[in-house]
């Protein structure tokens, strides 16, 4: 379960940034007072055009950056005041996730498992399960730098899931991937839902959203424009396509 209330992130602007933005304000809001809930067994999608504040929101949820104000409760833990505890519950995957090219897949998974404090017994079980599931055994001892994009994506998925997180955050997970590799991510998101995990993902690909999500929030310029179930969104649509409806909502 994720519960976000009045979440705000503001950044101070330097001279150059003020000039670019055509403002004299000292601060700019990347995210301004947004609230939403994501429930276990549900896929929640955060939508918005480029620069809407999706990544900033997900970075705050994953505790990489600290909110300026507001609260984030992740699996019953206040992620703002106890980020280390909250991180144990989170798996985080982005489309631009890099991997350590000079390690092999097995070494990388072992390293991340140790960072999450996964016991040796659990690690052996999880590795067997994930390596079989993702068909990784063949290249587990190959240096990551020598793997194909698809293989690397499988390693990323395995890294995200090795500690069996109850909350999984995907930041534009299929961005820049070919359709086959993107499909493995879509499958992972579905599997997470089936395993009653709380899933939140950001995207600007409406097809993906339509296919996967149970509820959604649309943000633009850091502000909440729409929040509700996917069912409601479809029913209240006045445009012909979801993409057109999304554009209308953003521009409203």
């Amino acid at each position: 379960m994720i519960k976000v209330e009045h979440l705000t992130k503001q950044f101070s602007l330097n001279k150059e940034q003020k000039k670019e933005a055509g403002t004299t304000d000292k601060f700019a809001f990347a995210v301004n007072d947004i609230s939403f809930d994501c429930k276990p067994g549900e896929i929640f999608s955060l939508l918005g055009p480029n620069g809407a504040g999706k990544t900033t929101t997900l970075r705050m949820l994953s505790t990489v950056i600290t909110p300026s104000s507001g609260s984030i409760i992740m699996g019953g833990i206040n992620a703002v005041t106890h980020p280390d505890e909250a991180r144990r519950k989170i798996g985080f995957l982005t489309g631009s996730t890099g991997l350590y090219a000079r390690l092999n897949a097995n070494e990388l998974i072992d390293y991340f498992a140790s960072l999450y404090g996964v016991s040796n017994q659990l690690l052996t079980e999880r590795k067997k399960y994930l390596f079989d599931l993702l068909d990784m055994n063949e290249f587990a001892h190959k240096r990551i730098g020598k793997l194909s994009t698809g293989m690397k994506q499988k390693v990323s998925i395995c890294r995200t899931m090795i500690h069996d997180p109850e909350i999984v955050i995907f930041d534009e997970p299929t961005s820049g991937l070919d359709v086959i590799t993107a499909e493995s991510i879509i499958q992972l998101i579905r599997d997470c839902k089936a395993q009653n995990k709380t899933v939140i993902f950001s995207s600007h690909i409406m097809g993906e959203v339509d296919l996967l999500c149970d509820s959604l929030a649309i943000i633009h310029k850091g502000e909440m424009k729409y929040q509700g179930s996917m069912q409601d969104f479809r029913e209240k649509m006045s445009e012909k396509s979801i993409t057109a409806e999304f554009i209308k909502t953003v521009q409203a």
Partner: peptide, 14 residues
Amino acid sequence: ERGTIETLLTTPVS
């Protein structure tokens, strides 16, 4: 540069 720092900082290690 390689985009590995973000995932590293999402782990429960100070």
